[in-house]
């Protein structure tokens, strides 16, 4: 995490009204995950599927001796599941209620410090299934970044009911 944070030049964006994000892509959509909620960013080597679990749960994996539950962001956001399997997929490791999780994304971009002035609430016509997981939108040059709500991504998933 600290390595990632160092990438941005602190002198340029030293502003209390800004936040740092790790940008990730899920099916061409640019998403931002707040740096402070991220534990690790890693690429997947091995994944053990869990039969009978919810379809969002891609499986479990061993990350330095800890068992981490992998959540497929594509499925969680209601997109097409990836056809090519999970080999070498990028994962963002987070902790929620004492358990280790990782969110599987298509691509991990860079670390950005985004100013609060470019922040906007979710547009009204946004897909309600996405709204749940979005904290809001940042207007970037030429593209939009959705601030991913990690809590929301994980809060309903632990109900344990298979759908």
């Amino acid at each position: 995490m600290s390595a990632l944070a160092q990438k941005t030049d602190p002198t340029v964006f030293h502003n209390s009204n800004s936040q740092e994000f790790v940008t990730v892509y899920v099916a061409d959509q640019l998403l931002g995950v707040e740096v402070k909620s991220i534990q690790d960013v890693f690429s997947l080597h091995d994944l053990t599927p869990v039969p009978g679990a919810r379809k969002e749960i891609a499986g479990v994996l061993n990350l330095r001796g800890r068992i981490v539950t992998a959540i497929d962001a594509r499925v969680r956001l209601g997109l097409e599941p990836r056809a090519e399997g999970y080999a070498n997929v990028m994962a963002v490791g987070v902790q929620y209620k004492g358990d280790d999780y990782c969110i599987l994304v298509d691509k991990v971009g860079e670390v950005l410090r985004l100013d609060d002035t470019s922040f906007e609430l979710n547009p009204l016509n946004m897909d309600p299934n996405w709204k749940i997981f979005s904290k809001g939108i940042y207007r970037l040059d030429g593209k939009l970044l959705m601030s991913l709500d990690i809590e929301a991504m994980l809060s309903t998933i632990d109900l344990g009911v298979s759908t």
């Binding site: 039969p51 009978g52 539950t69 209620k97 999780y101 998933i157 344990g160």
Partner: peptide
Amino acid sequence: PLSSAVAGAKAF
């Protein structure tokens, strides 16, 4: 132990 998300899969 399993994470609460996976604990729903009763077979394990």
